[in-house]
Design a binder for these strands. Structure first.
Lengths: 339, 339
DNA sequence: AACACCATTGCAAACGTTTGCATTAAGATC
DNA sequence: GATCTTAATGCAAACGTTTGCAATGGTGTT
C-alpha cells in the first residue's frame, strides 16, 4: 500500500498551534485573544501562524469554559389562532434587522420559533447554554411563556407593545400615536366614514385602535370596527362582503397592517371603487410592497432598524446584569397616493 | 442581615441530577438519552426527575464531547453589486422554509450572512464547531467562497441553479423549464413583442433567459432583453424610461422575479397601459404579494417548501459521509389576471 | 459446585479551551 | 552584590458531558 495523502488533516487544536509556535497553550490562547500580558511581537507571530494554518478556536470548548455563548436566540412567536404565518413580510423584515444588529455587536443569531423551543425557554436556551439571551418577535398571546422565562432569569427582550406592563422590557412602535396620526390624516384628507380593520385583542393593534378611537372622537366622523384576522386574505374577503351586502358605506380605511391594507385595496379596485377618490386608505408597517402597490400605499412606517438596534442593546444591558425598561420607537407618516 | 433567598439556584448539572436520583453520572446521561442499556424504569424515573427540576443538558459540554453540534448554519449570500437586500421577500421565505425543515430534523438554525461569516467558512463554522453543515441561500457571484468551503470538506448545499456544475450539490427550480413555460404562456395569450427583464449574468436568471429565448425561437415573435438589477425599483424606472422614450413597443413581459414584475406593473398602470389587455405580464417566485396585486400576478411558482426539505436532506446525507448531487425541483405555472 | 452469560450500573478518561497562580529572567534600587 | 520589581510565560485545574471498559449480581447450564 502506498502512503495515503492526508487531505483533510486532523483538526488543528490550540495546543498544536502552540507547539508549532514553540510556546505553551496558555500563551497561544492569550495571544489569540490579544491579551496584553503577552509580548506584542509574540502575539502577532502567533496570530499570523493561526491565519496561515486556517486555525479557528473550537467554540464548543470555549463556550464550556467561558460559560457564555456569544449567541442570541430569536424566537418568532406566532399565535396558533391567527393565520399570520412566518412568511409575514413584516416579521421577516424585523428578523432581518435584528440579525444585522446582533452581528454588529459580535453575536450570532440562533433562529427559532415557538414550536421548536418548547415550553421551557429558560431551560432550553439559557440552562442549555445555547444562547446568552433571547429576543422574542411578536408578543402574541403566549405571554405566559415569556413571563415564565423572564421570571426564571432569562435575559429577554420582546418586540411588541411597549405600553403593556410586564416583567420584561418591550420595544415597539408608539402604536397609539401611530394610530392617531393615521386617523387624523384620513380625516384631514376629507374622510368621514371610517373603518378600522384588524383585531384589537392583539396588544399592538389594540393600541392602534385606541389611537383610532381617540382621533375619531375629536372629529365629527363615524367609525366602525371590522374585526378580522390580520392577513390580506381576510381583509380582501371582508371588504368584498361589506361592499356586496351594504354597498359603499365608508370613505376611509385604517388598516392595522400593510398586508391588510393591500388586501382591502385589491377588493376595492376589483369593484371599481376609486382609491383615493372614493375611499382613502392607510396601512401600517411600510413593508417593501407599500410603495410598489398601485396606488402606492400611504402608511405609518415602523422604524424596525432603530427598534432592532434597541432590542439588542437592551439585551446586552441585561447580560451585563443591569435592568432596563420598555421603550417606544417613533413611527412616521408616509404619505403616498392611496390617501 | 437576613438570609437571602436563593432565587435562581446555581445551575443544576448532570452529576447533581444523578446524585438526586441516587445513581452515577453515566447512568443519568444514558437515561436521558434513552439508552436501552439502562433499565426502563430507571430511565423513566430519571427523566421524570429531570422534568421536575427543569434540568437541561449543557449543550456546550455535550458538543465538545460529541464533536458535533446539531446545528446547521444558513448563509444568506448576497452579492455586493446588486441592491437586492436581505429584505427580499423571496429570500426570506426560503429561509423560513429552511428553518422549518431544519427543525423537523431536530437541528437548530444559525442564521448568518456573507459579511459575518468572513472568508473562511470552513474554519469559522466547521472547525470552529459552530455548525455541522452549511446551507447557502443564493449562489451569487461569491462562488469562490462556496467552492473553497466545499473543497475543505464542509458539508454544504446551495440554493441556486442546479445546472451549474460545481463541487457541491445545488438545489433549485428548473429555471429553464420555468422560463420556457412562462414564455409559451405569454405567447399563447397572444403576446408577440416580448420583454425579458432581469440580469442573465446571474446563474438562475441566465437559465430562465435561456428558456425564454428557446420559447421565442420556436414562435414567430420578437424579443428584447432589458438588463436590470433585480429590484422592483429598477424595473419601475426601466419601464418608465422605455415608455417615455419609445412608447409602447411591447405587449408581453417576462419578469425574472415577482418583485421585478410588480415594479413594472406599477409603471404600466401609472401610464394607463392596461394589463393584461395591452401588455401581459408574468413573474417568477410566487411571493405572497403576487396574489394580492391588482391585477393578480401570473407567475411561475417556485416550490420553496419542497426545496427546503431537499436542501436539508441532502445536507444530512453529506453529514453521514455520503455524496449527493444537484437536483431540480419542478416549478409550476400559476395563471392569474395579469396575463 | 463451578462456570458462563446477561442485564445493569459505575469508574475514569477525554473533548479543547481559559485563567489563577507559580515561575523565570532581567533590570532597577539600595 | 543582595533584594525588589516588573514583564513574560508556563503549569494545571476546571468547565459538564459521553462512552469504553470494568465491575457487580443474578440466572441458567453442565
Amino acid at each position: 500500500m502506498s502512503k495515503g495523502i492526508c487531505l483533510a488533516s486532523t483538526q488543528l487544536k490550540l495546543s498544536d498551534l502552540a507547539k508549532l509556535a514553540g510556546v505553551s497553550t496558555s500563551t497561544a490562547s492569550r495571544a489569540l485573544n490579544d491579551n496584553p500580558l503577552i509580548k506584542k511581537e509574540t502575539r502577532e507571530r502567533i496570530q499570523a501562524l493561526a491565519k496561515e494554518h486556517h486555525f479557528s478556536i473550537n467554540a464548543a470548548a470555549s463556550r464550556l469554559r467561558m460559560q457564555k455563548t456569544k449567541v442570541i436566540a430569536v424566537i418568532i412567536n406566532l399565535e396558533a389562532e391567527t393565520k399570520q404565518s412566518v412568511d409575514d413580510p413584516f416579521l421577516l423584515k424585523v428578523v432581518s434587522d435584528i440579525n444585522r444588529a446582533v452581528n454588529r455587536q459580535g453575536y450570532e443569531l440562533l433562529l427559532s420559533n415557538s414550536h421548536m423551543a418548547g415550553e421551557d425557554w429558560h431551560g432550553y436556551f439559557i440552562s442549555g447554554r445555547r444562547a446568552d439571551g433571547v429576543i422574542v418577535v411578536g408578543q402574541g398571546k403566549e405571554q405566559a411563556k415569556i413571563e415564565l422565562a423572564a421570571k426564571a432569569g432569562t435575559p429577554i427582550v420582546v418586540w411588541g407593545d411597549p405600553k403593556t406592563s410586564a416583567n420584561y422590557p418591550i420595544v415597539g412602535s408608539d402604536n397609539f400615536v401611530g394610530g392617531l396620526t393615521a386617523t387624523e390624516h384620513l380625516i384631514a384628507k376629507g374622510a368621514s366614514k371610517l373603518l378600522f380593520m384588524g383585531d384589537p385583542a392583539h396588544a399592538e393593534l389594540g393600541e392602534r385602535y385606541r389611537g383610532f378611537c381617540h382621533g375619531v372622537e375629536k372629529a365629527d366622523v363615524t367609525a366602525k370596527l371590522v374585526r378580522i384576522d390580520i392577513t390580506s386574505e381576510a381583509a380582501y374577503a371582508s371588504i368584498n362582503t361589506l361592499l356586496r351586502e351594504n354597498g359603499l358605506t365608508f370613505d376611509g380605511i385604517f388598516a392595522c397592517s400593510d398586508m391588510v391594507a393591500l388586501g382591502a385595496l385589491k377588493a376595492l379596485k376589483e369593484r371599481y371603487v376609486s382609491v383615493p377618490n372614493d375611499v382613502k386608505i392607510i396601512g401600517f408597517d411600510d413593508i417593501a410592497m407599500a410603495q410598489i402597490s398601485f396606488p402606492a400605499l400611504t402608511t405609518i412606517k415602523q422604524d424596525t432598524h432603530a427598534a432592532a438596534q434597541l432590542l439588542v442593546e437592551k439585551l446586552l444591558i441585561q447580560l451585563s446584569g443591569k435592568m432596563c425598561e420598555s421603550q417606544e420607537v417613533p413611527s412616521s407618516l408616509l404619505i403616498r397616493q392611496s390617501s
